[in-house]
């Protein structure tokens, strides 16, 4: 099974960006899925605005999750509740409505 792509869009090294990455790592761990289920990429839109344009990005931090054979889903905010994000990641991966 191929990995689900997780794109974390952040704007520079703002405190919000660091918090978002920390919370994402915690949430992935909390899903209890085997390692390699998620392929995480962090995109700094200040360095790569072209990637923001490609994605039609609105807010930072934002997380775009694309499950294999699934459409892209958005999760916006600094994810200050990792358990909520973990539940959402699991739901999207299982193809259930979030």
């Amino acid at each position: 099974m191929s990995a689900a792509a997780v794109a974390l869009f952040v704007a520079g090294g703002a405190p919000r960006s660091a918090a978002a990455l920390r919370n994402l790592t915690a949430a992935i761990a909390a899903t209890g899925r085997p390692e390699g289920t998620f392929r995480v990429e962090v995109i700094d839109v200040l360095r790569e605005p072209g990637r923001a344009l490609e994605a039609g990005l609105l807010a930072t931090p934002s997380l775009a999750l694309t499950a294999p054979h699934g459409r892209r889903r958005w999760f916006v905010g600094e994810f200050d509740q990792p358990e909520l994000l973990a539940g959402w990641l699991g739901d999207v991966l299982d193809g259930e409505p979030p």
Partner: peptide, 18 residues
Amino acid sequence: DPDMVFAGDFDLRGMLAT
């Protein structure tokens, strides 16, 4: 996206980068 989920604070720097 109508299914977009919000959790926590965010800003519009993403949109401005776009």
